[in-house]
Design a protein around this nucleic acid. Structure first.
Lengths: 138, 138
DNA sequence: TCCTGTCACTTGCATTTTGCAAGTCTCAGG
DNA sequence: CCTGAGACTTGCAAAATGCAAGTGACAGGA
């Protein structure tokens, strides 16, 4: 008997993509991860101020969807470091499309850093941000 | 001088784009419009079956955002025909990025028609679908 | 004329999903 | 012991979403 409902809404790639990352926060988390952020705190401190409960839920969802992986970087209070899988990194192209559209059609917006794409002659990768600006000495 | 808060969440182009089309339905409406659908009924009959109240609201929102325009094609019971503005058509690139990502990473998905982009050597535009009137009771 | 049907929306809720604030846990430092 | 920071959880109140049914204006037929 048939594979039980393979798709949520239809077989359309767009519809299915939106079922995974089609909300207001998921792609922003991916953007931050693409920019090198790795911890919960770094993600929570992005300028958009994602509510912490939503961040926690999105991280679980994205992991469940194979877009990110979490690896413990500390044991006792288990703490995870989040990074993109190839599937997640591939969303860079989508991000880039949004950046281009936004910059072109929403006055005043800008791309805070680059969104990494296959081979695009934009942003000469001249950005080097020191990580952990508040590297607590501990 | 009111502190004209220009941005909802931040100046990031991605965040602002998502504030406009970052929900589960808006981009599907744009997709259909890009595929040539023009009336409320055609949009409502897409395979994803968007709830009619949401469709009505999205159309208003998209028009308010300058992504679509509605022109009456009939007077007495005023009926509108919806079409994309250049700003809306430009979302084709975002759609295309989603299609590519979906096809690559979500097994079984496909692009129902093409999403129109600048210059991309994909999908030789070989689809011609006639609008059928019988949809229910199959 | 009256009845039926279609198209394009609206309205009324019930269910979900956000968002905000505050709380919990664990460990470090003083 | 006390305070504080990091990483999450929990508790709701406030939207947003989804479903079904309703409405208004005709077109077409009996």
């Amino acid at each position: 008997m048939g594979t039980a409902k393979p798709f949520l809404r239809s077989a359309c790639a767009v519809a299915n993509s939106l079922d995974i990352v089609g909300d207001k926060w998921s792609l922003l988390v991916v953007r931050d991860l693409l920019h090198g952020k790795r911890t919960y705190g770094e993600l929570a401190n992005s300028p958009e101020r994602i509510p912490t409960n939503i961040l926690a839920e999105r991280l679980k969802r994205l992991e469940g969807a194979g877009i990110i992986v979490s690896t413990p970087y500390q044991q006792h209070p288990v703490r995870y470091s989040y990074t993109l899988t190839p599937k997640g990194s591939a969303l860079g192209d989508v991000l880039l499309a949004f950046v281009r559209w936004g910059q072109q059609h929403i006055p005043g917006t800008m791309s805070l850093g680059r969104a990494s794409a296959s081979r695009t002659p934009t942003t000469p990768a001249t950005q080097r941000r020191k990580r952990g600006k508040r590297a607590d000495r501990s």
